[in-house]
Design a protein around this nucleic acid. Structure first.
Lengths: 198, 198
DNA sequence: CTAAAAATATACCAATCGGTATTTAATTAA
DNA sequence: TTAATTAAATACCGATTGGTATATTTTTAG
């Protein structure tokens, strides 16, 4: 069984993660943390060295939640085409899920921390590269098994897909206009189709 | 001639704008403002009601700077195709300019303020809509003068262009990998080409 | 059941936060 | 050039910030 400290730590992260995603690292105060958890400062600082450590853990938690949602959305796809379209499908309805209502933790953290918070920026950077590699793998598998043309620019498409998704979430959230998601996802789908070997 | 107050106000905005773009509204303190300007609190609060008013003015200043840069980039384009390609060209070298080094004020403000700062969110929203309309106008002109096919989905492309640009800037900034800009801009250019008549 | 250990709460800290009232300095109109 | 006005500096305010030392409670091992 897990220790009390481990459970409390997980509890703090779970309760504060959405606060960090909504208000950002700087915007989230210790009182926000004690309020969200119902615990006191003593409990927080007994389990984390400082606010930054909570923020880092909350970031991992938030990003893991998004990527496991993505994995789930792809879990029933067999072909590479279906996997990629499951990704665009996932983001088409992104904001319908309560758990994603404060936007994308990647984009939120990227814009907040790029010039101010090296530790978090490094984590964001690593996650973007990992994400890109994941997309590249799906594409390469599709090429290998004959779903896609051999001359598909795998790296370029992975860049395009990530960038389009991130922009769509950011702009759609800021404007409350979902056509900023729908149209770009349609476009990505059409690019995927154009890669097909028929 | 302008009054002293007007000049000081402009001076404060000019000196603090990049601080706001770098650190955000919450992350920029009054001491950041006095430090950046060399003025005291008395001077700041003699010209602005509160910090929010400075933040709003700084946002307008930052966004105006980007869009006037964009306008300049397009100023020598005659055809609609050239105008749209001037936009992608502008963003290809975005971070080379010292004045844009802290990223896009639209994306930065969008992610920071969407859940926390109604006044700034409203401004961001309005600017996104205005930007989209501007792109639509260029496309419609191109259709009217026979540059583009008649069945081009103007609204969809405008959404795609804005979203792709914003995502490219955000991800490229966070990763320091410029291929997150180059590849998506190449794609946008190819889409523009595909809209061409004959 | 008890004693040691671990975890949480309480009480406190200096520093900084955004903001204001007042004083001093600079500008402007006569 | 002076008097009125405007602008900016100074000094202060209560509240909140992140963080710590200590006391108390809860958990855990024997």
């Amino acid at each position: 069984m897990s220790t009390k400290a481990e459970r409390t730590k997980a509890f703090i992260i779970e309760k504060t993660s959405s606060v960090f995603n909504q208000k950002g690292v700087v915007g989230t105060s210790l009182s926000d943390i004690t309020e969200a958890t119902g615990l006191t400062k003593g409990a927080i600082y007994g389990n984390f060295a400082d606010k930054e450590e909570v923020a880092l853990a909350a970031f991992e938690y938030n990003v893991d939640k998004v990527f496991s949602g993505l994995a789930e959305a792809m879990s029933h796809s067999v072909t590479s085409v279906d996997k990629l379209k499951a990704v665009t499908g996932f983001y088409r309805t992104y904001f319908a899920a309560e758990k994603y209502k404060y936007g994308c933790p990647m984009a939120n953290t990227a814009t907040e921390c790029d010039d101010t918070h090296p530790a978090l920026q490094a984590k964001v950077k690593g996650r973007y590269f990992k994400w890109r590699k994941g997309i590249e793998i799906i594409l390469n598998e599709g090429i290998a098994n004959g779903e896609f043309k051999h001359d598909v620019d795998v790296k370029a498409f992975a860049n395009l897909m990530i960038v389009t998704i991130q922009g769509a979430i950011v702009v759609s959230k800021a404007t409350a206009d979902e056509s900023f998601v729908a149209a770009p996802m349609d476009f990505l789908d059409s690019v995927i189709e154009s890669y097909r070997l028929k």
